[in-house]
Amino acid sequence: MQSAQLQRQLNELTGYYALPASSRRDPLRERFRSLAQQWRRETQWLSSTTDIAMHPAYQAIIGMGTEALPMILEDLRQNSGHWYWALKAISNEDPVVPRDRGSLKKMRIAWLQWGETKGLIRA
């Protein structure tokens, strides 16, 4: 009984590592995706930057810390979105010049360039 269980676990492990890295389940990435979806769905009608950033799912993503930065930047590149508060909160940096605050297109470019410079996302 125990050996059958061990064999099944071994098979699962072998199968997991036989997959390309990009296809493996990544709990952190899955958690991020789930939280980001919830955040988008529940804040889409809001104008308040503060309420958008204070949403519990967004705060949970901030709570993931620096590990979340590559995922946020990738999501920003693919889907855009109000990620700037989180990026600033986690990194303690802000590459957006004051005159561009509120201009989401310019903010997106500034943060993606920042991420590339830091090696967090590919250029």
Binding site: T50, R101, S103
Partner: peptide, 14 residues
Amino acid sequence: DRWWWPDSQHQSYW
């Protein structure tokens, strides 16, 4: 072309 809001983190235009 700008998002207006008086947020404390200065992420929006005001």
